[in-house]
Simulated scan of single mutants.
Amino acid sequence: MTRGLPLIVTRPDPGGVTTVDRARALGLDARHMPLFAAHSLAWAAPDPSDFDALLITSAQAARLAGADIGRLASLPVHAVGAASARAAAAAGLSVAVVGESDAQHLLDAMTSQGIWRILWLCGRDRSAFDPRGAALVPLVCYAVDPIEPLAGWEELIAAPAVLLAHSAHGAARIAEIVGAARKHLRLIAISAGAAAAAGEGWGAVAVAGRPDDAAMLAEAHALCHKGRK
């Protein structure tokens, strides 16, 4: 039985390895091709009493924040997606809400509940959101820097394949290095924002129903087995 089109996983590790393992367990021909490397940055925890909640939009924030994240343990965490929630819980934080859509929808829900003072544990390169009048304070604790594609990248993208974009930043990078000749490639985006950042010209674009690996890999299973042209 064919394994379908190759599935190119571009997210930085350790998430990239996890996604590849999950995809292969589903019978997909997953290829580990990270286009970024994540690393911690120095940061100082503010007084948690100045905030009503902690927003986490990426699992990397909780993984790379270091021991000082414990100083924010009194704040209820609103996490985008199950992976962010698991990472926050593993770091000793209390997860109050797990958003099932993107960060903007989660922010909208927070403000509708009267949560106005929000500390956002995030990366250096991050998407812009409409805070809906809330005091949204970014606290940068990590960075994700581009790296050169691994050997075999050019051969993979020259033939039909499916790529995963786990963020808007990642989608833009994929689009940049793939170039305009992309009609033979299919893209799965973690959110509508990531899909928009990838631009036009793909053979197909699918947006995950939830911002997590399970939803993205469900889309991947469909696109990878649509057949080759």
Rank of each mutant, 00 (worst) to 15 (best):
K183F: 01
V77M: 07
D47Q: 09
V140P: 06
A79W: 01
L106H: 00
L139D: 00
S49V: 13
A189S: 14
V95Y: 01
L107D: 03
E148F: 01
R63E: 15
D68Y: 02
L41R: 13
I188G: 11
L121Q: 06
L72E: 08
R186N: 08
G227D: 11
T19H: 11
A206H: 10
I157A: 03
A218I: 08
P14M: 11
Q113V: 03
G152C: 07
R11T: 09
R182K: 15
S40I: 08
D52L: 03
T19C: 12
A62S: 13
W116F: 09
I118H: 10
I157L: 04
A42W: 08
V95K: 01
V80Q: 02
G193S: 04
A59N: 07
D50L: 12
I69Y: 03
E176R: 13
V17M: 09
E176M: 14
D13R: 10
G16A: 12
K226R: 15
D47R: 10
K183A: 15
A135G: 08
G92M: 04
D13P: 14
L163G: 06
Q104I: 01
S94E: 10
A38W: 01
R71H: 09
G133E: 05
S84T: 07
R132Q: 11
A181C: 05
S112G: 12
A197V: 07
D21S: 13
W202M: 10
S58Q: 00
S74A: 13
I118A: 07
L217I: 03
D47H: 06
I118Y: 10
R126L: 06
R182M: 12
C141Y: 01
A23C: 07
G227L: 10
R186W: 02
A67N: 08
I69L: 14
A82H: 13
E154R: 14
